[in-house]
């Protein structure tokens, strides 16, 4: 009971609560659960009835052909789908560590502090240097001291496997880095606010194969500490980085649904559903 209350507080209270230690049994890591989630863009339904459990400290891949709702779905996991034009409605529940992020008292801004996101195209802030980009989230929500800033810059760039490449140009513009470096900078920036879960929406789709390999290696490192959900159109990538894989598909009504979710090896080797088998064999999509 106490644990539940303090965790709800952590989501709704005004001050950001970091490194909050709940009473009761220790969490194995941060987990998520999606219960009967449906999404509408205006009048058009985009996703229907998704149920899914996201394992703590593991990478969960979401694969499927274009238009299957996988990007829409991942944007619902930290309420990013509410950003932008149109009235985007959601029904169902998305739980972080057992607490619904769509509960009426929850502030979506706080949700995103717990559940970070990395986007398709690297989007460092062009008005900021490399170091400023890393601590942008910290600076915009709190007043970190100089030593906190320095510590965070080095730790997060190191976690994002970028420190050695940029340590001599921390004050250069974030936009001066290569595409792959920019994407790792964006990952460092997301890590700097200490999220519980990291969402990645096709993080390598704008990168060349070498940069892609570095990001994949990074994901494998990061999932020791973080819970990761990654959308990818690349089935090999899912096999390389993900512990669990979910296959989404839109039927003729153009509404995306979860077809099958299983441990990655099993999903690719022994898919239970015919459609999954056809997709992973490359017969469509």
């Amino acid at each position: 009971m106490t644990a539940t209350h303090s965790q709800i507080e952590a989501l709704v209270r005004p001050e950001p609560v970091r490194h909050h230690v709940p009473h009761g049994p220790e969490l194995p890591g941060h987990w998520m659960q999606v219960i009967n989630l449906s999404v509408w863009y205006g009048a058009r339904q985009a996703v229907e009835g998704v149920n899914m459990t996201v394992r703590p400290k593991a990478a969960t891949a979401i694969i499927g052909p274009s238009g299957c709702g996988k990007s829409t779905f991942i944007r619902c996991l930290n309420r990013m789908h509410e950003v932008g034009a149109g009235v985007n409605r959601v029904s169902g529940q998305v739980l972080l560590d057992g607490h619904d992020i769509y509960a009426p008292s929850v502030d979506p801004v706080k949700v995103r502090r717990h559940i970070g996101m990395v986007f398709q195209r690297p989007n460092p802030f062009p008005s900021m240097s490399v170091a400023e980009n890393v601590v942008a989230g910290l600076r915009l929500v709190s007043n970190p001291t100089k030593s906190q800033v320095d510590e965070t810059v080095e730790r997060c760039l190191d976690q994002a496997a970028l420190w050695d490449e940029v340590k001599d140009k921390l004050s250069a513009s974030g936009a001066s880095l290569s595409g792959g470096q920019q994407q790792r900078l964006c990952i460092a920036r997301a890590l700097a606010v200490s999220p519980d879960v990291l969402l990645m929406d096709e993080p390598c789709s704008a990168l060349d194969p070498i940069a892609t390999a570095k990001i994949e290696q990074l994901i494998i490192e990061l999932k020791r500490d973080y819970t990761i959900v990654i959308v990818t159109h690349n089935m090999q990538q899912a096999q390389r980085v993900a512990d669990e894989t979910a296959f989404f598909l839109a039927a003729e009504d153009r509404i995306g649904r979860l077809v099958e979710m299983a441990p990655t090896g099993q999903l690719f080797a022994h898919p239970a559903d015919e459609r999954t088998a056809a997709y992973v064999a490359g017969r469509f999509g």
Partner: peptide, 24 residues
């Protein structure tokens, strides 16, 4: 995408406008 990046860090919208959009 820059506004999205700011919001995804858990920064309130007004702060994203002041801290990211206007400087850009």
């Amino acid at each position: 995408t820059l506004r999205e990046a700011g919001l995804a860090l858990g920064v309130p919208k007004w702060r994203v406008i002041l801290g990211v959009v206007l400087p850009t």
